[in-house]
Write a protein that binds this DNA or RNA. Structure first.
Lengths: 270, 270
DNA sequence: CTATGCATGTCGATA
DNA sequence: TATCGACGTGCATAG
């Protein structure tokens, strides 16, 4: 990572750094005064002010103000970025995206600092509890859903969509289980309701419907009760523990499966 | 804006810059090698790699990788940020957020560049067409919905939610109008359906339901037709023009209203 | 302060 | 390639 760092560079200098960095697929950070125009799905204008602009190695562009999580303006991943300096207007960075067609124009009048470098990030990212993991754990431990519950199908197509878990209770009645990793909203309840209705239409039997989540909004509970559906709380912390075990198990079984096959990741295709 | 820019600083130097910048409510950009741990609603671990970290003036923290729009890890706005350097582990930045309780720990092992400065951004930001503006324009120009349409209520409570526009058609039949500024999905169609059903239950009369959007997904159209609902296309460009006029009018009437009162914004409360 | 719905949402999986 | 649903969604607003 050979980094370029310039303090109070001229706009010409920045132009060169940005141009070369885009060509060399390096990341650029510019801190300075600019205005921004956006036109695409919506349209916006941002007047002159001091901001941080990131141009990423895949062409994503972010304009960040002094506060807040979200960028003020951005371009997720761009087909083409143009850079040019004009005596009258300043340093112009033009990012164009296809599908949807969107234009982002950043005009710098002053730059305080510019940093450019090729970032190498092989870092493995692990998210400990996501919905698919929750589902895997529940499938492996169906008693967490209900004593005597038996899983028949995962991601079962029902009507327009897919219900997370399909199975039968101890009395062999069909059950549709919908999962939410976060607070369940009315939307989740209605989604489950649609599955239950669709299943009833298709099979001629009304199944039980259970919504599993760590928390429920009042409107969700109200809707569930009104629709004749059930809900259960899941403990994410406990899930987390089980996920860890489950993962260890999965890794082990994968190792067994690939035993003797060649290991090693794909080469870096830059 | 007196900016600090350091190339390949020692971790001790970075510690000092970050500590002082947080105290002085300045923004910091750090480019270097780090690992990141997050625990809160979920939990994640990001192994060693090169990234850009922004610490914003309100305590928001963003960890950006070399590509993509979204930060890998973040903290939207933090109650407390701690910084400390340890010979063994490296430079640790610890950001804690209340409600929900979440912890973000960034550990730098090497820093390529650090930039810090107080960003001044008075820049007015104008978004030309958002949904509320769309609604205002349609209320002011009901014939855009349908010839002879009369608006009776905006954001009318119906069932669980609020329908954007409620009115009557030329034959005095009740009409529920739902707006989407972007492509309408099946979700939007189902939302309108819920309103229509709720209205029918409450009033004993089934109203017409119209979904207005610049575009419709096939499944949205399929659902609308199946549910006996209608849809119309709106032209965002035209909307934009009308919004401009409408805004001018609103500003004018606001000026009339506040005539003689004192102008000027609030003082910067840093 | 909580609940609800929008967003230039973005992103990933899937048909 | 288009569509669909999840997201540590974030965020503003209404009650």
């Amino acid at each position: 990572m050979s980094t370029i760092v310039k303090s109070k560079p001229s706009l010409r200098e920045v132009e060169e750094v940005v141009r070369e960095s885009i060509a060399g697929r390096r990341l650029v950070v510019i801190v300075g005064e600019c205005r921004v125009d956006y036109e695409g799905r919506a349209a916006s204008r941002l007047e002159l002010g001091e901001r941080v602009v990131l141009i990423k190695q895949d062409g994503a562009v972010l304009v960040h103000g002094p506060t807040g999580y979200s960028p003020i303006n951005w371009q997720p991943s761009t087909s083409a970025i143009e850079v040019f300096y004009r005596e009258d207007s300043g340093l112009v960075i033009h990012a164009v995206r296809d599908k949807p067609r969107e234009y982002l124009t950043i005009t710098f009048t002053r730059v305080e600092a510019v940093v450019a470098g090729k970032l190498v990030d092989p870092g493995g990212f692990t998210m400990y509890v996501d919905e698919s993991e929750m589902r895997d754990v529940l499938v492996a431990n169906p008693s967490l859903i209900e004593e005597g519950f038996r899983v028949l199908e995962v991601e079962k197509p029902v009507g327009d969509g897919y219900v997370d878990i399909y199975g039968v209770d101890r009395e062999s009645r069909p059950v549709l289980v919908e999962l939410k990793r976060v607070t369940a909203t009315r939307e989740a309840a209605l989604q489950l309701y649609r599955y239950v209705e669709a299943y009833a239409r298709e099979k001629g039997v009304r199944p039980r419907g259970i919504l599993l989540a760590p928390a429920f909004s009042p409107s969700a509970i109200e809707t569930l009760l009104r629709m004749g559906l059930e809900y259960r709380y899941v403990d994410l912390k406990k899930m987390g523990e089980l996920v860890k075990k489950h993962k260890a198990w999965k890794r082990q079984s994968l190792l067994d499966y690939t035993k003797g096959e060649r290991h090693g990741g794909a080469a870096d295709k830059a």
